[in-house]
């Protein structure tokens, strides 16, 4: 299967409208034909995942600092929910502090990336992230 035909459903959770715009644009510029959804905080994220439509994104791009329910709390809920914990979560945040990185990994995040300054870097990151999680999803699942 050629990569250009791969379709991933990606969910962006970020309270910053400009960042949602930039991440969406970067995903569109990437090699993947993505279906992209957006939510603005952790509460909406959990609501989306528990919605009646039963939609399971292939990947969640999660900001840490958000109002109502922040990324850490949402992450904790996702990773402690049997039905949701297998969805890969990539934290995409401005904070690069060791403290945040350690804490977030201890909550079970799959990757931790700090938001890059340039748009080209954002496209590169989206390519890498999507490629990686696509490859992982191709591996035989053993429970």
């Amino acid at each position: 299967m050629s990569i250009s035909k791969i379709k991933l459903e990606i969910l962006i959770a970020d309270d910053d409208a400009e960042d949602r715009m930039l991440i969406t644009d970067a995903l569109r510029e990437s090699k993947y034909k993505d279906q992209i959804s957006q939510v603005e905080n952790g509460e909406e994220l959990i609501h989306f995942l528990n919605g009646k439509s039963n939609r399971r994104p292939d990947l969640i791009l999660l900001d840490l600092n958000m109002p109502k329910k922040d990324g850490r709390e949402a992450l904790k809920e996702i990773k402690s929910d049997k039905r949701l914990k297998n969805i890969p979560v990539v934290v995409l945040t401005t904070s690069g502090s060791d403290d945040d990185i350690e804490k977030t990994y201890s909550l079970g995040v799959n990757s931790y990336i700090t938001k890059p300054a340039g748009f080209h870097d954002m496209v590169d990151i989206m390519n890498t992230v999507c490629h990686y999680w696509f490859k992982i999803s191709e591996l035989p699942q053993n429970g």
Partner: peptide, 14 residues
Amino acid sequence: LQEPLRKIRAFGDR
């Protein structure tokens, strides 16, 4: 200060 600057660079690139 890095935050708005990141946006300036990203949208400038765009």
